[in-house]
Amino acid sequence: MYAQMVKSEGMKSAEEMTPEERAFQNRIDRNEKIEPKEWMPEGYRKTLIRQIGQHAHSEIVGQLPEGNWITRAPTLERKAILLAKVQDEAGHGLYLYSAAETLGVSRDELMEKLHSGAMKYSSIFNYPTLTWADMGAVGWLVDGAAIMNQVPLQRTSYGPYSRAMIRICKEESFHQRQGYAIMMKMAQGTPEQKEMAQDALNRFWYPALMMFGPSDKDSVHSAQSMAWKIKMNTNDELRQKFVDETVPQAEYLGLTVPDETLRWNEERGHYDFAEPDWNEFFEVIKGNGPCNRERLEARRTAWEEGRWFREGLMAYAEKSAARRKAAPHAAE
């Protein structure tokens, strides 16, 4: 998902827990929210910083593939819509960074870790956006997959994270629908436009399935994260739900999901589908996807070239504060 393969601390049984840890787990089991200054196990805090931080980085880096098309949108209206969508993603990043900071990590530290590669962002944003139809596919599939994961996370145990998710979910539906609207337009357009839409679906289908991360049935990390309610569903559950919802949407568009094994399984009440190529996924995670270098470079450059601006505004703020102190009434 936007947070993939987040490592969490080892799982403890009720007997192994300290009385504090047991009381904490009981609060979570009662669906109480945990707030920033309250006692929490160190593992809970660390895992959340990793997860929320990775989620925030994904929102920010996720602006790049779509930002690529803002100046080339086919109409002024499409341009305004895409700009608003990308601006929302910046907002999502900011809500999430603030939530992570309540756990005792600073914004600069998070930035440093993104830029050094110590923290990751979602694999999906390492794929290029080659045509305008990709703006449709990204909104429809990528935001669609993100919604699958973010909706249940509104109920997560950590208060600031849950509130950020509620705010984000309110805005996500616009993202998916504007993407699907682009796909409808293209799919009902000229044969060449329909071909572009099909090509975008072909390229984004498997990377979208990878967003949920590899199967985590036997992972201890996800068992602990699920006990803490910072992961609400298994990766496979969410992936299945995504496929079940998306296939009929593709059919409506008259487009073909690039999976010959895809069929409705009457018995299971779900679609059977092919797994993505997990080797490709691990390569992308390691930094060897088609756009990893370009994405990180863009983020580092923005950070470096914005330094004089951040420092200038800070110096100005300090100077005017000092001036106000020296002459309290003159500044009014």
């Binding site: 608003a84 900011l94 914004r107 705010r167 505004l313 703020a317």
Partner: peptide
Amino acid sequence: VGSLHAPDAEMAIRNARDVYTRR
């Protein structure tokens, strides 16, 4: 509604407009 970073109060209000009142 949340928090954000800004160099001073005036910029905090401007940023808050963009971050928290886009709709």
